[in-house]
Design a binder for these strands. Structure first.
Lengths: 226, 226
DNA sequence: TGAAGAAGTGAATTAGGGTTCACTAACTGA
DNA sequence: TCAGTTAGTGAACCCTAATTCACTTCTTCA
């Protein structure tokens, strides 16, 4: 009697929705949020402008979903790392350097998600994921404190926040399309990125390690990929 | 022959300009950048909308100047602290906690200047001052390394960036109008603010101190106002 | 096959502020 | 006081995208 979506249609709808998301993400990772205009997204997805609104109630919702998908993946990666059974110091080092290296792999997108000026609504969604990231870092910090590897006198929540802010800030320069510094400085291949990531991680680790003997030299940790 | 501004006129013009700046700053510190609409600023300054453009070529220029004036003062404060002859560890602690405490004194304005979403042009100006702040912190770090108080194995530029990002991030939560957490948590009087500032500074100091014996306990430093 | 319900379309509408500009008021120097 | 010049005014203009909506096309099912 009534109209019922057949499976094939359902699939097509889902596919369209995904295509819109993909198109939006692609545009953002090419030119930042400015490129994520509905008309652009629509044509990149091969549909009409108005059709986007069949799938997303507003531009903000679309953008927030783009941000969420990408950010959640990073949170998941950090969670996996936080679950590792390595020494807390090493775990933290791996977590931070993995985040930095992953961000540097898709710089424009990372810049958009982390630092680029944007609408209030997107910015608020950012906070959610920063908090989620901070939570994972805090877990590592607490574990380390429990194990006696990290200083017990620091508030784990504050320490985690400082660490997250610290590596995020360190990323802004290298990520920013404004600062082509990192580009111009010749070698910014995998090695340079890894070195940067390692140095940032060193500082973050230093912030919490109890440090009986002088740990954390220039190459203190085995290079592991997360 | 030609028209020459008399001193009295010159003074009035300067006064108008200042009134515009003051009005804009007041509006921003009440309701953030959204309040800094030209028409609002104009009426708050007691002049007509169009007159604002006699003094500032564009809204962006006006906003950037508001940001610059306030930010430069903070840079100056940090510079003075960085020049102190105290132990580097204490200098760093004072620098960070002074920044935090000062920001908390005018939270809405600090939030707008540090973290609120805004136009690209304002955001770019922010970077300039973040960099200036980072430079002062880096001076402290370098001094500390030279004095042997700070770990020599960390890149001072990266360490400074992490520290700046760290305390800025720690501020976002407490400053944000969204998170009324800090408000609701009852006591957020001078004591709570000082405690927060001190804890944040602890973490920042921990990131760089060479730490022969366990320094930086919960109340490691004399409470000095900067 | 055809009536009813969904999905797709894209040009037109809307909205919110920044910016302009034709005009008036005030000021300067002779 | 007057001609020339600058400051002040604020309603109208503009620009840019997001959003809407009347219409077309596609799907479903009896």
């Amino acid at each position: 009697m009534a109209y019922r979506k057949t499976e094939r249609v359902e699939a097509r709808l889902a596919d369209n929705r995904q295509r819109i998301l993909d198109a939006a993400r692609r545009l953002v990772s090419e030119g930042g949020w400015a490129e994520a205009q509905i008309s652009h997204v629509a044509s990149a997805a091969g549909i009409a402008t108005g059709s986007v609104y069949r799938y997303f109630p507003s531009k903000a919702d679309l953008c927030v979903e783009v941000l969420s998908v990408v950010s959640q993946r990073e949170v998941d990666v950090l969670e996996a790392i936080a679950n590792s059974a390595d020494a807390p110091c090493q775990t933290l080092h791996v977590a931070v350097s993995a985040f930095v290296e992953r961000a540097m792999r898709n710089r424009r997108l990372a810049y958009a998600l982390i630092a680029e000026p944007c609408d209030r609504e997107i910015d608020e969604a950012r906070l959610v994921y920063r908090h989620a990231i901070s939570k994972q870092i805090m877990r590592i910090v607490k574990d380390g404190q429990a194990a006696g590897d990290f200083r017990a006198d620091l508030d784990p929540s504050i320490a985690a926040t400082v660490i997250v802010g610290g590596f995020m800030e360190s990323l802004i320069g290298p990520l920013s399309p404004l600062n082509a510094d990192f580009d111009r400085s010749g070698t910014h291949g995998p090695d340079a990125v890894r070195a940067l990531a390692s140095q940032i991680a060193d500082v973050c680790c230093a912030a919490v390690t109890a440090q009986p003997g002088k740990a954390a030299s220039s190459e203190p940790h085995p290079r592991r990929q997360a």
